[in-house]
């Protein structure tokens, strides 16, 4: 029995190798899924960062900037309740887009490979192997996509900030808030990606091989 376990349980190194190979072969699809994740995360991070900047205008902006903004009528507009509810909406929409976009992309990319999962089970692949394979794949895509998305989102937010508030944009967002935003976005991106992939992969791995191969998605 022990011998059997040694034979069949694949080391993580091998799973990673297969996952990597699979992604390289499916380069275009991997790229599409990853960029979908990146896009969703860029939007989320951008909204969170620029909201953060506006919220800090009253406290952290210099008097000159406040006066300039007040002169242009921007300050009042930015801090009005109407604007605030609008930004809350934007944040909600950003969250929804990230959630729907990422989960949908992962669901499709896994369910279209149900037959492959069934075949792998026929050839002696363990349920845990299949789950590990998709875990590795989605972790990679999630991490890369989220990182790219966050970088793009933050850069865009600062570009917009520079445009609106000049060089003071860099002081507006406290470092703690920025780190908080980064952590939240990163965790949200990776967790959503992994869950979106693991749920269908797990359910397919649990099926009898025939059912997995027969299911048309």
């Amino acid at each position: 029995m022990r011998e059997m376990e040694q034979i069949i349980i694949l080391p993580y190194r091998k799973v990673l190798q297969i996952a990597w190979q699979g992604m390289r072969i499916r380069l275009l699809k991997t790229f599409l899924v990853t960029s979908c994740i990146a896009l969703a995360l860029a939007f989320l991070t951008f909204i969170m960062c620029s909201n953060g900047m506006v919220e800090q205008l009253g406290e952290r902006a210099s008097e000159q900037l406040q006066q300039r903004l007040a002169r242009e009528g921007l300050l009042e507009q930015l801090l009005s309740t109407e604007q605030r509810s609008q930004t809350a909406w934007m944040l909600g929409i950003a969250l929804m887009i990230s959630f729907a976009g990422i989960v949908n992309a992962m669901l499709i990319s896994v369910t279209e490979r149900f037959r492959e999962i069934g075949t792998m089970k026929c050839l002696g692949g363990l349920d845990s192997f299949i789950v590990k394979l998709y875990l590795a794949e989605s972790l990679f895509q999630g991490t890369v996509g989220t990182t790219i998305g966050i970088v793009v989102g933050v850069v865009l937010a600062y570009v917009e900030g520079l445009n609106r508030f000049g060089s003071e944009a860099f002081q507006l967002l406290p470092i703690v808030t920025l780190v908080q935003i980064l952590v939240i976005s990163f965790v949200a991106g990776v967790v959503l990606t992994v869950l979106g992939a693991l749920y269908p992969a797990w359910s397919a791995a649990k099926m009898e091989p025939v059912d997995a191969m027969r299911s048309e998605v």
Binding site: M4, I7, I8, R115, G118, T119, K121, C122, L123, G124, G125, L126, D127, P209, M213
Partner: peptide, 17 residues
């Protein structure tokens, strides 16, 4: 899984490669 892997070889109508 061990049995499928070592004892049985499958061939399908739709090839399933």
């Amino acid at each position: 899984a061990w049995l499928r892997c070592h004892k049985i070889g499958y061939i399908f109508q739709t090839f399933n490669l």
